[in-house]
C-alpha cells in the first residue's frame, strides 16, 4: 500500500487530536437538543463546499462536495449511482472499483475533487443501450456471484484485467483478481466468466 509523501518529522502534529478547522459554523450548525427534533434543512453549504463537475459514464455530473468527500461517497450519496459498492471503505475489498481514465482504482480512496477532468466509468456505464457488456453477460451466465454486492467491483476489475492482458492462465486471472473479495465464494465461477469472455472476444 502506498501513502503520501509527508512533511518529515512526524511529531506532535500526528499525535494529538489536531482539530479540524471549523469554518462557516454560523450558518450551518444546528445545535442538538435533548428533545432532538430539528427543523428540517437541506445540507447547508459551508466554506469547504466545492462545486465540481465529474465526467461519469460520458455525462457531466455536477456535484457539491467537500475536499474530503471520496469519489465513492460522491457517486453513491449524491449522484445516485449506487452500483458502485462500499464494502470496507479502506481499499481492502475492491467492491468500489471503478475506472479512472481506463485504469481500475478503488473509489473509496479516491477524493472526488481529484477525479475532476478524468473519465470515470462505473458499472452503470458498461452496458450500451441496454446491451450487456460481454463480461457482464458472462458473469450472469456463469453465475459469477451470489449476493451480488461485490459484483460491480468484480466486473469492473475483470474488464480492466482483460484490457491489461492478464488472462494468460487461470492462475494469472486469480492473482490479478485478488483485489476483489467475494465473501459468497463465487471465485471459480468468476474465473470461468472471465476466461469465457476472453475466449469469445
Amino acid at each position: 500500500m502506498s501513502t503520501v509523501s509527508r512533511r518529515g518529522v512526524l511529531g506532535a502534529t500526528l499525535t494529538g487530536l489536531a482539530l479540524a478547522p471549523q469554518r462557516g459554523q454560523a450558518d450551518e450548525t444546528t445545535p442538538a437538543s435533548p428533545s432532538g427534533t430539528q427543523a428540517p434543512s437541506s445540507p447547508a453549504r459551508s466554506a469547504e463546499a466545492l462545486d465540481i463537475v465529474l465526467q461519469v459514464n460520458g455525462s457531466a455530473v455536477p456535484l457539491t462536495v467537500e475536499p474530503r468527500t471520496t469519489l465513492l461517497d460522491a457517486l453513491r450519496e449524491q449522484a445516485q449511482l449506487t452500483g458502485t459498492k462500499k464494502g470496507c471503505d479502506h481499499g481492502s475489498c475492491g467492491a468500489c472499483t471503478v475506472h479512472l481514465d481506463g485504469r481500475r482504482v478503488v473509489s473509496c480512496l479516491t477524493l472526488a475533487v481529484r477525479a475532476q477532468g478524468k473519465a470515470i466509468t462505473t458499472i452503470e456505464g458498461l452496458a450500451v443501450n441496454g446491451t450487456l457488456h460481454p463480461v457482464q453477460a458472462a458473469f450472469a451466465e456463469q453465475d459469477g456471484f451470489q449476493c451480488g454486492y461485490c459484483t460491480p467491483g468484480q466486473i469492473m476489475s475483470a474488464v480492466a484485467l482483460i484490457d491489461e492482458g492478464h488472462t494468460g492462465s487461470d492462475a494469472e486471472i486469480r492473482e490479478w483478481m485478488s483485489g476483489n473479495i467475494c465473501r459468497c465464494g463465487a471465485y471459480p465461477n468468476i474465473v470461468a466468466a472471465i476466461r469465457g469472455s476472453v475466449q469469445e472476444g
Binding site: R76, E124, A137, A140, E141, T151, P152
Partner: peptide, 17 residues
C-alpha cells in the same frame, strides 16, 4: 440463469442503503 442476474451485473439491484 438467476432471474435477478441482470440487475446484479448492471449495478441496478438495490440494497438497503
Amino acid at each position: 440463469d438467476r432471474v435477478d442476474g441482470h440487475l446484479k451485473v448492471t449495478g441496478h439491484a438495490t440494497y438497503a442503503a
